[in-house]
Design a protein around this nucleic acid. Structure first.
Length: 330
DNA sequence: AAAGCCTACAACCGCCAAGGG
DNA sequence: GCCCTTGGCGGTTGTAGGCTT
């Protein structure tokens, strides 16, 4: 058969990432920028496949990621966007720049889906268009019936989206600087990760606390066991040399200083986060815009990211959107 | 205190599309 | 046009930690 998955290759580590690995990855991205993931394992000496590195970066380490504590507004947006787009988590995530598709997917699966099912059962959730039920093409339904149902669902989704996005105009997420200024807003969230650097710093603090034998000034990029190496994880790949070769040739403490140095932490952190996030978010947004070349989505994007004053007009446009005029969507 | 259950989420896996040779 | 590599996406799983009994 075809090429074996990278996960099956010998010497490729699986399981939870250690702080050392995180730092190596962050250091690589800081040096080379996100991309060319194929080069990450060879350049850094990480015993992870490129795919795993990319996932770790995009879902966990990438700057500007907010974790946990979904707000009511975010929750509603997800529900409405899911109703409109289906399980297109990446597309949905593009409207919530601080959230990853994985995060949204998890939140949907663990919270919202159950919540909506409950609400439906109790008859409270009827105004939400739940799941993709309207888009399923049952063979028992005639083509005419199906088209009619589809049209009804588009209308319902439109209404639902309109409802969700109009209740709190102030919270509409804007690209670029607004993403970062939002971190300063008071919030009752349990955790708000301002940056990956801070995240890793936290991890490291906990890690060094748990393992008093580790000294920050002696830390190297090694695969030595740590409290994170549960069930021997991390040992399987340390057999090759006992100490993994750090091809970057960087002292961990150096990397740590570079990333979290007291003097430079604030500025470096914000600069890194800011530049990376704004560029990445824009690239990602552009990418998604190109991917979903359907009128209603473009309209939504314009609406969501246009100035507040324009939102009203765009909202009217959105509500004027009809199935007939955009039937080529399907 | 301990066992069992539940929840949340990080990570894995398979599939697909794009791009280059 | 075909094959291979790479990146991206969505579904699913594994497991740590919290909660209940």
């Amino acid at each position: 058969m075809g090429r074996p998955p990278c996960f099956d290759r010998v010497g490729v580590k699986k399981g939870p990432w250690t702080p050392e690995e995180d730092i190596m990855l962050v250091y690589y991205v800081q040096e080379h920028g996100p991309g060319n993931w194929k080069a990450v394992p060879t350049t850094t000496g990480l015993c992870r496949c490129s795919k795993s590195c990319r996932l770790r970066w995009t879902n966990y380490l990438r700057p500007g990621i907010k974790r946990g504590g979904f707000t009511d507004h975010e929750e509603k947006m997800i529900i409405q966007l899911q109703a409109l787009l289906g399980n297109k988590w990446a597309a949905i995530a593009s409207y919530l720049p601080e959230r990853t598709d994985n995060d949204i997917k998890n939140y949907w699966n663990t919270h919202l889906n159950k919540k909506l099912i409950k609400q439906q059962q109790s008859g409270l959730g009827e105004h939400y268009l739940v799941k993709n039920e309207g888009f399923s093409t049952s063979h028992s339904v005639s083509r005419g019936q199906w088209e009619k149902k589809l049209q009804t669902d588009i209308h319902t989704a439109k209404q639902a989206l309109h409802e969700a996005l109009s209740f709190d105009n102030q919270n509409i997420i804007l690209p670029e600087d607004d993403v970062f200024s939002s971190y300063n807003k008071p919030s009752n969230q349990t955790s708000s990760y301002a940056s990956s650097s801070e995240n890793i710093a936290k991890l490291l603090r906990n890690w060094t606390k748990k393992d008093p034998n580790k000294h920050d000034d002696q830390l190297k990029f090694t695969n030595s066991s740590s409290p994170y190496d549960k069930n021997g994880m991390g040992h399987e790949n340390s057999t090759s040399s006992g100490e993994s070769t750090n091809k970057v040739g960087v002292d961990l403490s150096e990397a740590f200083d570079s990333l979290f140095g007291l003097e430079s932490f604030e500025s470096a952190n914000s600069d890194f986060s800011h530049s990376s996030n704004s560029i990445e978010a824009r690239q990602y947004h552009d990418h998604e815009s190109k991917k979903d070349q359907v009128p209603v989505i473009s309209m939504l994007e314009n609406w969501l990211f246009s100035e507040a004053g324009n939102n009203i007009k765009m909202r009217e446009d959105l509500c004027d959107f009809t199935f007939d005029q955009d039937s080529h969507m399907f």
